[in-house]
Amino acid sequence: MLSVILKRLLLAVPTLIGVVVVTFLLTRALPGDPAAYFAGPAATKQAIEQVRAQLGLDKPLPVQFVRYVNDLAHGDLGNSLTTGQPVLAELRSRLPASAELTLLGLILSMSIAIPLGILAATKPGSIVDHVCRIVTTAGVSLPVFFTGLILVYVFYYLLGWAPAPLGRLDVFFSAPRTVTGFYLIDSLLAGKFDLFRAALAQLVLPALTLAIFSLAPIARMTRASMLSVLASDFVRTARASGLTRYTVVITYAFRNAMLPVITTLGMVFSFLLGANVLVEKVFAWPGIGSYAVEALIASDFAPVQGFVLTMAVMYVILNLIIDLLYGVVDPRVRIDA
């Protein structure tokens, strides 16, 4: 198993190199002059040039790139221009907020989409099938920021069920002691149930927004892949052997149908990471997405590049997990790997 992981990681290396190069080029192309920014508004031209030399920005691009890679290798993502803080520390403190939100959204959507897809596939042309089709098409058509706003309007403004969409916790609560960084888990670990409730209340709407957004591709893929598996020869064999409908659908069809669904999950996760940026903006969520947006608007390149790199690394890790999961489900892949 270890060698499989190693091989997979090795295959991800060229991709990561590509990511680093692209990130470097993108951030250097950002408008604005960091040297002028650091030197301050009153600085003379000479002072700006001095700062530029300090930052190494007067060197040709390849030299800058080597320096940049060197910094990366030492875990140095630079400092933010606007806050002055090291980017790495800021990302580290904000990442759990995004991760908690994204994961909850994904779990929520999987727990709705997969059963829905299965039901639709086992009864094609039925009401469930039509509902599945409408829900998924509508879900994928909703702009994620728009869903968020509608949810806020309905559940906060009209019904008053949800708290104000302002961050991870109501101002009256203070955050639990950091263990995992996930408020839901940390509050339970600390035994503070009211805190748990408060964190959950804040989390429900944004997570639901993400779930609605990611419902469609998962349900669609589940349905399509279940349909094709249910029509396959081995399912017919299972039926002809008198296995119960449950065994046929779950043990035989579903496990096979999961393979393409797992692949889709990787893509959905990528979508979610992107959608996160928008959702965090709508709900004033202090995650890495909103951090990156603020930095982008300010042409603050260190946080942007840190953010993009973090996202890419997370995505590579996720794909690794998916590949391994795939191997667990499908023996054919295991032999190949």
Binding site: S232, D233, F234, N256, D330, R332
Partner: peptide, 8 residues
Amino acid sequence: RLALNPIR
């Protein structure tokens, strides 16, 4: 070959 569940 197709008549058997490929992953069981």
